[in-house]
Design a protein around this nucleic acid. Structure first.
Lengths: 180, 180
DNA sequence: TGAACGCAGACTAATACAGTCGGCGTTTGC
DNA sequence: GCAAACGCCGACTGTATTAGTCTGCGTTCA
């Protein structure tokens, strides 16, 4: 699998729908159906975002999630680390200390400091993380909204409202607009 | 596992031993024992480096590997791609096209071009790859040799020569300096 | 000829990831 | 007060990848 996982992808997609949605919590189930992904899988991702302080949860009926801070202060790196837990790009096996000419015990100069190869990998990882840190939910959300027609945001808000009120007034029958 | 694998780590460590070793091929078995890693595992890595044109192989007794071009023209990125095959940092699932408000068929504006999230990941991947491309076997090898005492390179060359000649003159008994 | 090579492919064990399921505590509407 | 809609947690499954082993084949050289 790829280093940046599907969980992160789903998480960011969901968070983008929460941008500019400050007073109405949205449930992970609704977000899942809105995007056509697995509800139970999304339900595993959101608690991590909540623990990292990226979203706020409200429990009970009509509960759901809201962004915990403004979208321009939530970077892609925040989301990646929240979901994946700062997993390293490279896992140094410290091969340098095993050189046969050292015998049983490697000399100090060989194992002091960071392995030269590891240092390059850390530098590459930093470059990647710096890029992720430079992009926020606000900047990417805005870029997406410039592509979408003006009515799109309203359509989505309407879809979500329909689902919530549809459950309340029509006895739990989901309001789907996909015929079959 | 980490995105940059142990195979790459072993590969780079081996290639660094081949720097400045232009006329005497070294076998993957000797490189494995020199570094205390699995010979059969290393034997799986080298053919990929050979197919990528990073090393040249010579078969038969006294065969082995040499760098196929100067060390200052072999970057870390070359080695990573040779061994891992340009695997992407992120695998976009095209969630954007599944939005429920679109119904069965997503409109063109939604799926045109690169997904905004994917674009950020590609940018991060490029930053990582640019860093890996900027580092060569020559630069890192030199950095390592500055840490090592002057006699170290000779010690290693001696160890390798002992192993080759030891096999020839002493009937295949490996010249190990680690007692047990 | 045989040992030391490279090379290819099958195989195994461990891990991680995507996804599912069931149970529990909380909140709200009827 | 009860049931449905929530969040949250842990156990579970299937599949893909990785690290590592093993066997067999063709080549080279003493």
């Amino acid at each position: 699998m790829a280093h940046i996982t599907t969980s992160v992808e789903y998480g960011i997609h969901c968070l983008l729908w929460l941008v500019g949605n400050d007073n109405r919590p949205v449930s992970s189930r609704d977000l899942a159906e809105l995007q056509g992904v697995s509800p139970s899988f999304l339900a595993k991702i959101f608690p991590r975002l909540e623990k990292a302080g990226i979203v706020k949860a409200s429990e009970g009926v009509r509960g759901g999630y809201l962004l915990a801070r403004p979208a321009d202060r939530i970077s892609f790196l925040d989301v990646v680390d929240a979901i994946e837990g700062e997993k390293p790009l490279f896992d140094c096996q410290e091969v340098r200390g095993r050189c046969a000419v050292f015998g049983a015990q490697a000399p100090g100069w060989a194992t002091a400091g960071t392995c030269a190869i590891h240092a390059v990998m850390l530098q590459a990882e930093k470059a990647m993380r710096d890029t992720l840190a430079s992009q926020t939910l606000a900047s990417v959300g805005e870029r997406f909204m410039r592509k979408a027609p003006p009515a799109f945001a309203d359509d989505v808000n309407g879809w979500i409202s329909d689902r919530v009120s549809g459950r309340a007034t029509r006895g739990g029958r989901p309001a789907r607009d996909v015929p079959d």
